[in-house]
Simulated assay, not measured.
Amino acid sequence: MYVWETLDRNVQKTAGAGSRLIETTNAFNPNEASIAQRTYEAAMEFGAKGILYDCREAVRDIDLKDESAVRAGVIDAYGDSHWVDVDGIVAAVMDPRTSAAVAYRFYLNNIQENADGWLVKTEWDACFDDGDDPILPGDQIAIGFDGSIRGDSTAIVGARLRDGKLFMLGLWENPRNPKQPDWEVDVLAVEAAVKRAFETYRVEWMYADPPYWQEAIGRWAIEYGDDRVYEYWTNKPMRMCEATERLHSAVAVGDVKHDGNPDLTRHMLNAVTREVPQGLLITKDSPRSRKKIDAAVCAILAFEARADAIADGRLQSKRRRVVGF
């Protein structure tokens, strides 16, 4: 992205002298917020001047098991590229090892999300609350917390009890900067964010994943109430699969909201699914991927905490419990 932005700036400065920038790419994945997507949207949705967008796509939703339909789609997508090995491409599409997302994007040139992506971007976008009903101090909320020390992110996500609206309470990400090889999360900042959340909102339920933070979670339970702060081990597949499916279903039917936070959206759309005997879990697209999903895990925990708080009658609670020492 940074290379493209540098090139684009230089071209813009010398456009009058005839400078041009050519972009060639496969069909983009709309979950990745790529340069290809930015160019497509600038040209096709916003009518930006100075961009010539030329693309051939096969008919969408071709039956990938129908060889004749696949062949027609390949011929359509490649147009007059007579040098293309149509038979080879058809064979690649029909190969059972080829995922649907790869077939559509790389062989039929369709804009396509990863087949194993957890959320559909359009469905997540449809859950956006444009600000008419903002989260306010004193609102009843539930919290999800997933902490790390060095490698992954540490995040805190809230969910308002009455409507499930998700919002970020804090995010600390390893910048992966060679100049900061010893980077660690600012533990004091995390502690302060948790304290601020409990002071600002009526936190009815908090689920926190214990690894690396078990001592801190214990202190939070003492300080804010052991009927408010609970450990939630995300490495227990049955429980986590059920919680993951609950939020996924809520997004699909529009039974959850979010405030449009770009970091939360990025983490939610980075998540891909992994099948286990108990169901589906979310994970990164590869073990060494820099595309973090920790805020998505927190959103799952926050949404689950909300459900349990409501089941416990907290939504009707008129006052906050006071913990004395």
Rank of each mutant, 00 (worst) to 15 (best):
F145K: 00
V190A: 09
R228A: 10
V86P: 11
W172P: 01
R105T: 05
W213E: 02
R60K: 15
R162P: 01
A92S: 14
G313H: 13
I217Y: 01
T244V: 13
D226T: 08
T200W: 02
I135N: 03
K179C: 03
L136K: 12
A43P: 03
Q12Y: 05
R160N: 08
A271Q: 05
W124L: 15
L280R: 14
V120M: 01
E223M: 03
I156N: 00
G73T: 08
G138T: 07
I141F: 03
D129Q: 12
D133W: 01
A271C: 10
Y212W: 08
L64T: 04
D263G: 04
E242Y: 00
T24F: 01
L52A: 14
V74L: 09
Y230V: 06
V187A: 13
E67Y: 11
T98F: 00
G313S: 02
R319F: 10
G225E: 05
L119I: 09
I62P: 04
D54G: 09
S19T: 13
E245P: 00
R60I: 07
A305D: 10
E32Y: 00
I156M: 14
S68Y: 08
W183V: 05
G254W: 02
Q112L: 00
C298H: 06
A192F: 11
P211V: 05
A159L: 03
T244F: 02
D61R: 13
R60Q: 14
D66K: 07
R97G: 14
W233D: 15
